[in-house]
Design a protein around this nucleic acid. Structure first.
Lengths: 343, 343
DNA sequence: CTGAAAGCGCTTACAG
DNA sequence: CTGAAAGCGCTTACAG
């Protein structure tokens, strides 16, 4: 493989001149530049990334820590990953992906061995074990997901409280007074998935303020359990006219469950989910939903991370905590509640 | 950040001795080993990956080229990715992930700059533009997906021909004589997604051999188009009693479409898909399917790649092309065809 | 505008 | 069993 030394020799210049001709970091005569460029293309020269990283202390790589936890819905993670990956590339960075069950080890490995210039953590828990490690690392980090303590990191998340209110308000405005909410599995909450109760608490609060009944429950993360959960919920609350679904697996299972019972949305039941438009189209989910904007969150996290890496924002400059406002995407699965006695 | 020089100084030995004590590549006195280990832990020393790569010409990183093409179903890719990532980690490798639309650029970047020791290509097309680049790279490569020309690479894929036969045979054995097949979008085939017609041709052949009618068609990769495709197909063939689905998006949309028409599987229609068990559970797909084994394929590709990287198999040793045999997972969506006139 | 030299942090023959 | 030195392939002050 050709090195910068080969390029220099062919071009008849010193290695430093060859290097500068390529980086453009100092003035170079047109003649020399031409000769260096010719040498580069005739040799098919590409700089050795490891050597460059060693010399510059910059790897041009961003670590991406995606956790696929047992009780969570894996495909939802993909959209965050793609948002991060695509944005990183636009900024000239590659992605080192860690899917280790043990995110702390992966994070430590990446940062301690200086494989990355910075790190994006996905699916951050309220008391995320990765955070102390990230704070003691010398690279900056950006999170998607809101932890209890945000010091030293930039944080991006959907405004789940607003999402909860939005879902409740929407059904309230249509006349619903008795509504169900299916959240992610309780395990997720126990493990620190704060977004679950952030949405749930805000929804309960909004329902209370509006004089609505809201039954909040948890659903499993895969079949057949989540189908059973949905059936049990509908059985237990025959008078409910609305269903809020903050659980991707439940949203995916719902069409089948409704079918079994001969129910249709919105005629028999109004349904509002919380997932991305991409997700809805991919999985043929016909429900009105609150957009969770995973690509946008991934994109925001990378942008801020790159700003930190490249020193556009000083190391002591305050870290940000930014929430994306949820938006309701109407897919026609909500309407006025059915009149009593119609069934 | 501590360097090996710091470790050596604290331990009172030379840098080479410190290095050997850590690598174990030559005999070290117990005393020295202890002192080096103490120094390492007191300093929290971790080798700089870039420096090590430069010295050893080994990065301990595998490039993963995942293409998310417009007309393909993104979430199916995730399972391959996880199979690759998890297996790489078990072998001590990290993953450099490229999701660039232009896979050739990403591949060239990774290999030319020596960021990776080897490469896994996902979703390989029949005449994949990445292959010439891979062949001229100095790193080995493993593919998931069968190209027309397999020289110089190790290849792993599902036996799609066998899968097509299996699906047809299964319905034939149950008594079906008129059957539909929905494949991936025609765009995918045109772009070189050979697996589509490998399955389709084998299915057509098997149907012919058994005297069955098989109508083969293509479906879109997302909603609402794929729903429309399915409806059109069912409208056009009211006498068909079986439906084969080699299209994840169609499989995901099917429950809703069946619901709309008041159809149930297997009472009204026998359905066989082609997707992984993981996929079925995640998306609540209730259909009997041919297991596509993405995790297993990712795992096989990495294992062979690591063997090549680590020289366990000589560079001239013949490359392998290995097919995974499909297995039918019965989820109860197939049965005898409904008797004529029952509707 | 250009070159010679030092240095990034490792590993590994070479020598003892 | 251990050390001094060279080298991996870059970049970047320093000097002219």
């Amino acid at each position: 493989m050709a090195t910068i030394g080969d390029v220099a020799r062919i071009a008849g210049v010193s290695r430093s001149t060859a290097s500068y001709a390529l980086s453009g970091k100092r003035a170079i005569s047109a003649d020399v530049r031409r000769r260096v460029e010719d040498a580069v293309s005739s040799l098919g020269y590409t700089p050795n990334a490891g050597a460059r990283a060693l010399a510059t202390t910059r790897t041009m790589v961003i670590g991406l820590l995606a956790q696929f936890l047992p009780d969570e819905f894996a495909p939802a993670m993909l959209q965050y990953m793609l948002g991060v990956s695509d944005t990183a590339r636009e900024h000239g960075y590659d992605i080192l992906l860690a899917t280790d069950a043990d995110g702390t080890r992966a994070l430590r490995r990446m940062t301690d061995s200086r494989m990355v210039d910075g790190v994006v953590l996905l699916n951050v828990a309220e008391h995320d074990e990765r955070l102390p490690i990230l704070r003691s690392a010398s690279q900056p980090g950006a999170l998607v997901g809101l932890p209890a303590d945000c010091t030293g990191v930039d944080v991006f998340d959907l405004d789940f409280e607003e999402a909860g209110r939005l879902m409740v308000d929407h059904l309230h405005r249509l006349g619903h007074r008795e509504v169900l909410l299916v959240s992610q599995p309780e395990h997720v909450v126990e493990r620190g998935g704060a977004y679950v109760w952030r949405l749930q608490n805000a929804a309960l609060e909004a329902a209370r303020a509006r004089g609505m009944r809201l039954y909040a429950t948890y659903g499993s993360s895969s079949q057949p359990d989540v189908g059973r959960d949905l059936r049990g919920l509908l059985d237990a609350h025959p008078d409910a006219t609305g269903l809020l679904v903050n659980n991707e697996a439940a949203a995916a299972a719902l069409p089948t469950v409704l079918h079994e019972r001969g129910l249709s949305a919105p005629q028999d039941l109004s349904v509002v989910g919380r997932y991305s438009d991409e997700f809805a189209r991919t999985f043929s989910l016909p429900f009105t939903s609150v957009e969770s904007a995973p690509d946008r969150l991934g994109r925001m996290a990378v942008r801020q991370l790159v700003r930190r890496i490249e020193g556009e924002v000083g190391p002591d400059e305050p870290h940000v905590v930014r929430f994306v406002s949820p938006e309701l995407v109407d897919r026609g699965s909500t309407g006025a509640p059915p009149r009593r006695g119609d069934a």
